[in-house]
Design a protein around this nucleic acid. Structure first.
Lengths: 197, 197
DNA sequence: AATTCTATGATTAGCCA
DNA sequence: TTGGCTAATCATAGAAT
């Protein structure tokens, strides 16, 4: 009943000792970092790859256009292979290409495609990463992604609730495929369900 | 004389059209993103790799402990090579190891080592990435990194100004070495001086 | 391509449910 | 491990340099 909240305190930039505080902080800041990365990619049309290993050793990633795409491009530029890097750079997402891919996706799994999966494909095509938590956000990311695709925006907004309400799917994504150079990999990455080590 | 500043406005999450605004936004947000990534790594002891390609095609990176270390670990975990990944994970920076490396560095280029270069080595050992811009900050990063090393803190603070004042060095770092797996690579990455494509 | 200034919008530390 | 709350603290759009 009473307002007991302390509000934000300044926190020194040094390793947090308390395990619980650290966990909470990591969770919140990881989310915030991904959001910032996402905004940078959308606002400025930049390719971004973000990889974070939690202190517990779990990998979390975000990528636009996809982690793999950016890593490929980076590794190529790093190796000095200018030509190959140019190719990777050209993998930059452009609208028409996104739409083409999306249609392929939709066509391929046509019969069994539920509406929710279509939405997923669109989000995926836009290079937005979604993890377990974010499914429950009122993602500005989702809206922006759909907006970028310039279609089904209104309908998607209506479907968003029912789709995000039903929980499963994103959870049990198959084991991550082996990386392939300059091949367009699945654009969505997620938190690993398993714990390394 | 008059206060003409408008203060922050809410900005829609969509690609910025105006080229100039976009450039300024990219510059500011990239800096902010790196700061956030840095704070996450320090506060929570997390390994973080961040790669950003500007719309112009320039790569910017941040890494703790280093971009390469994190990428190695990620690629290994990705490939399902659990054992190798465990090795990469163990590359987590611990103080004693940092100090050992640092001493090697200092010893190796002993004769020609200026004071400034020593400072660089320390910052580098802490896995903090410095690009052209950040040299001019009053980096809380710098302070934290030095603090993490638990040494020469006070002296470093005094030296910081004169070292960061003199501009060169970071600029003309030799061409990036080829990546080597699970070998500890140079921990500092910087903005490329050239423009791809 | 980056920095400074300032008013605001956005993020988040500490607590609980 | 996640979500909501509240009140600081922090980040940054716009304009000009």
């Amino acid at each position: 009943m009473k307002k007991l909240t302390q509000g934000r305190k300044k926190i020194p930039v040094e390793c947090i000792e308390d395990a619980n505080r650290l966990q909470v902080c990591f969770s919140k800041r990881r989310k915030g970092l991904v959001k910032k990365a996402f905004e940078l990619s959308v606002l400025c049309g930049a390719q971004v790859a973000l990889i974070v290993f939690s202190p517990a050793g779990k990998p979390y990633t975000y990528g636009h256009t996809s982690v793999d795409a950016v890593l490929d491009r980076f590794l190529l530029s790093y190796s000095g292979d200018v030509e190959a890097e140019a190719v990777a750079a050209s993998q930059q997402t452009d609208l028409s290409e996104l739409l083409r891919q999306e249609e392929e996706l939709i066509k391929a799994r046509d019969a069994e495609a539920r509406r929710g999966k279509e939405l997923q494909a669109e989000v995926r095509a836009a290079g937005v990463w979604i993890d377990g938590d974010m499914r429950h956000w009122e993602l500005p990311e989702l809206e922006a992604a759909l907006n970028a695709l310039e279609r089904v925006q209104a309908e998607a907004a209506m479907r968003a609730h029912e789709i995000f309400a039903q929980d499963a799917m994103m959870q049990q994504t198959s084991a991550p495929a082996r990386r392939t150079r300059v091949t367009r990999p699945p654009a969505v990455m997620k938190r690993w369900p398993w714990t390394p080590r």
